[in-house]
Amino acid sequence: MTPHEGEILKLARVLGAPAERFGYLRQVPLEDLRRFREQVTDVLFDAHLGVLQRMAAASRLLPAPLLAKMAEVVFGPLLSARIAGLVDPGRGVEIARRLSPGFLADVAAELDPRRASGIIVGLPEKLVIAVAKELARREDWLTVARFVEHLPDTVIVASFGFITDDALVRIAPLLDDQARIAHVVSLLPEDRLDTIPGDLAG
């Protein structure tokens, strides 16, 4: 997969449509396509913004254990992802710590990491690694790629224990920042540097 194809795949995920429907966008320059995808994301996340802001404000009045239960049972992953970018990061971390890795993986697939970076960096590494492991089990490499830029090196290194070389090859073209590939590869243990494809190793 090329970075261009990866960008189309990300756009298709945002719109909830098959990537094949957007094949005509292969002729659009990569940076323009990325900018368009970010604009679409912003429009979707800002839809009904007033209602979401009121829900986020109301969440300050309820105990975190109750909100965590409501997130899983009532809100679901899509609405939880929309609200996550509007709550105070500390409060978001307090709630997320009480959610299961499986549900957090569902939320991650719907989340715009740009809007919730404060929550992401505040989560316990053990929980982040558990979510990454669940995403790897699902082979949801698109979601994994979208969070690589927001994760500390210690989490990335720990993830090498369950992310194979083949998976790394599939994740690399999906990164928004292609320069990040070299950094990720530099964190690999020496015994894996000889096993990854040459184009990934640079």
Rank of each mutant, 00 (worst) to 15 (best):
P3M: 02
P3I: 01
K10A: 13
L11A: 03
A12W: 01
G16V: 03
Y24W: 12
R26I: 11
Q27V: 15
L33I: 00
F36W: 06
F36G: 09
R37D: 14
R37F: 03
V40T: 05
D42E: 15
L44S: 06
L44N: 02
F45E: 15
L49Y: 09
G50T: 12
Q53H: 10
A56M: 07
A57I: 12
L61Y: 12
P63K: 09
A64G: 09
L66S: 13
M70D: 13
A71K: 01
P77H: 04
A81R: 04
R82E: 15
A84T: 04
D88C: 08
G92L: 05
E94N: 11
R98I: 01
R98F: 03
L99D: 04
P101A: 04
P101C: 08
G102K: 05
L104C: 04
D106G: 04
L111W: 02
A116K: 03
S117E: 15
E125M: 13
E125H: 14
L127E: 02
L127V: 06
K133D: 10
E139S: 14
L142H: 10
T143R: 03
T143L: 07
E149F: 10
E149V: 06
D153A: 13
V155Q: 06
I156H: 05
F162D: 04
T164W: 09
L175I: 00
L175W: 01
D176R: 12
A179K: 14
I181P: 01
H183P: 02
S186I: 00
R192S: 02
L193T: 08
A201G: 15
